[in-house]
Write a protein that binds this DNA or RNA. Sequence first.
DNA 1: TTGAAAGCGCTACCAT
DNA 2: ATGGTAGCGCTTTCAA
Lengths: 332, 332
Amino acid sequence: MQDIARLAGVSVSTVSRALAGSHLVARGKREEIVRLAAERGYVVNTTARNLRLKRSETLSVAIPLGQGTGQSLTDPFFVRMIGHVADEITQRGYGMYLQKVLPPTESWLERLIDAGRADGIIVIGQNIEHAALQEAAAYRPLVVWGGHEPGQRYCTVGSDNVAGATAAVEHLLATGRRAIVFLGDTRVPEIRLRYEGYRCALESAPQGSAGARLLATPLAADAGYEALRALMREGAALDAVFGATDLVAIGALRALADAGRRVPGDVAVVGFDDIALAAHTTPPLTTVRQDFARGARTLVDLLLRRIAGEDTPSAVLQAELIVRDSSLVRGA
Amino acid sequence: MQDIARLAGVSVSTVSRALAGSHLVARGKREEIVRLAAERGYVVNTTARNLRLKRSETLSVAIPLGQGTGQSLTDPFFVRMIGHVADEITQRGYGMYLQKVLPPTESWLERLIDAGRADGIIVIGQNIEHAALQEAAAYRPLVVWGGHEPGQRYCTVGSDNVAGATAAVEHLLATGRRAIVFLGDTRVPEIRLRYEGYRCALESAPQGSAGARLLATPLAADAGYEALRALMREGAALDAVFGATDLVAIGALRALADAGRRVPGDVAVVGFDDIALAAHTTPPLTTVRQDFARGARTLVDLLLRRIAGEDTPSAVLQAELIVRDSSLVRGA
DNA sequence: TTGAAAGCGCTACCAT
DNA sequence: ATGGTAGCGCTTTCAA
C-alpha cells in the first residue's frame, strides 16, 4: 500500500480510502488509484485488515466426526451440506474456513471461537458432541445443524426428523409391510429422533405387525450391508428396511440383492436424506428428503444474525417423503 | 495476552514465549502461565499472529466450477477430494480455507494469492480455467489437481488418465465388446485425456469393431442418463458404455435399465473414479480407481515444498482398473 | 479533501 | 531467564 501511495503521490490513508471506494476521495484520484492497484496486481492484505477491524468476514464450518459412528468427511451427506453452505457463505461475500474435528480434541470449540479466525461458527452434525455444544451455548455466534431436543441450549437448524421418519414408516405400513427393521446409530441425536418417529408410527401399526426392531450400525454403506447380511443369516423375518440415512439404505439394497431377496417384491427399502444418488440406485430409493439448500441458507442466516447480536431461535425444516420404486406396493 | 501477563506477574514477551512452549522460560513459570491461560479460556489471536509472522498456516483450496460442465460442489468426486485434502491439511496442523470459484470472477487467482489469507493454493480441477492457471504459473505456491498436458507451466497432481482409460477400453475389447460409446465432456482437460486413452485403445481394436463414438454430456448422473436415452432412441448400436466419470456411468446404468437393456448381458458399463457408491450400484460398477488419498497427500506435500521455496515437478499417479459385475464377460 | 499518527495483538530482536 | 520495544499492514480518528 505504501508503494501504491508513493506511485500515486498521495498518502496511504488516501489509498486505503480510495480502495474502499470512499467518497471522501476525489473521484478522479480514486479511479487513478484503483487503476494503479489493479495494474500492479496489488490486493489489500486480509490479515492486517482483519486485525485492524477485529472481524474476519469468515465463517468457520466445523465437522465433528464422532468415534465409531462410521461417518467420514466423504459421506455424501456432509459433502452435500458443505457444498450448499459454501454456496451461501460465498454468496454473502464471506470466506469459509473448514475444520474437521476429530473426537479426542479437547475444548476445540473454545479454541475455534477465540482464535479470532472467524466471526462465527457453523457446526454440522451433533455427532456425540452434544455435551461440548451445550457448554459452548453461552458463546453466541454458533449455529448447529442437527436435531432439536428439549433442554438444548444451543441454536440448531435441522429437518423434522421425527415427522419425516413417521411419514416413511406410515407409508410402509400403508403398503402392507409388517416387519420393518430400523438400521442406524441412535447415539447420534438426529438418528435418535428418526428412530423415535419410527417407533411412534409403529405404535399405531395394524394387528399382526412386528414390533420395533433396531439394528445398530455405523452410518456407512458398507456397515449397512454387513449389518443386514448378518441379520438375514440369523434368519430374521423382515419385509421392510428403514435406513437411518440413504447410505445405510443403499448398503441394505445391495445386501438384499446379494441374498436374492427382491426389492420391492420381497422387501421394501426406505432411506433418509435424498442424496443425489438415491434416484439412481436399482431400484430407485424411496427416501425422506432433507432440503439441504434451505437448511444451508437458514444456517448462514441465523449465524449472521447472531453475529449481529440477535438471539435467534432454532429452526425446524419440513422433510418430505419421496416415494420411488424401492417401496412400491408389495407385488406391484 | 496483556491480562495473562498481569495475572502471572510477568511481561507479555514471557507469556508469548511460554505459550509457544519455548524453553527460554523457566519450566515452573511456563506451566503456571499455560495453566492460567487455559483457566481463563485465553487463546492466542491467530490474526495478529499471522500478521506478525507473515504466514497463515492455512492453505486455500479453490474449486473452479466451469460453465456448463454440469459439475457442482456436491459432485462426489469433489467431495471425496475435499475430504481427503482436508484430512491431509489438518494432519499437518494447517487450516483450510475453502473457496468456490464461479466462472465470471476475474483474476480470482491473483486475488486469492495476494490477500495473504493463505500460504499456498490448491486448485481442484482445471475445468475450463486452464488459461488462468497458465498465467498464474509464475506464482509458485500453487498446485493443481488435474491432467498434465504438454506445454503446461503449472504444477499438477493427477491420475494417469490416458493409461487408465486405455486399460478400461482394452478390458471391454478383451471381453468381446465391439461398439463402445464414450460419455463425457472433453472440454475438461482430464476428460480429454481419458477420451484420448479410449481412442488409443480402439486403434488396436479387432476387426469388426465400431470406431470411436463420443457422446458429449455434462458430468452429472442426470445428464448421463438423458444423453444415453437419447442415443438409444436414435437406435444406435452399442454393447458397451465408457462413462468419463462414475456419476455419468451411473446415469447410464439407469438409462439402460429403463430401456430394458441388461447389464452386463446386453451392454457393459465402465466408469472412472471409483467413488464409494460404485461398489453399491446394481450391478456393481467396473471402474478406473483414482487413488484420492494418495493424490491428496501428494497435493499437500508438493504445495508445502513449494511454499518452502522448492520447484517441484508435476506428479502422475497410477490409476487401477477395478473389474466388477457391470462388465462381466458377455453372457456370463 | 487530505495527511499524520495511533493502535489492532502478536513475536522476536536486543538488552540486561 | 526475562523485559522493553519495534513493527507486521491496515483503518480511522483527529487536525489541517
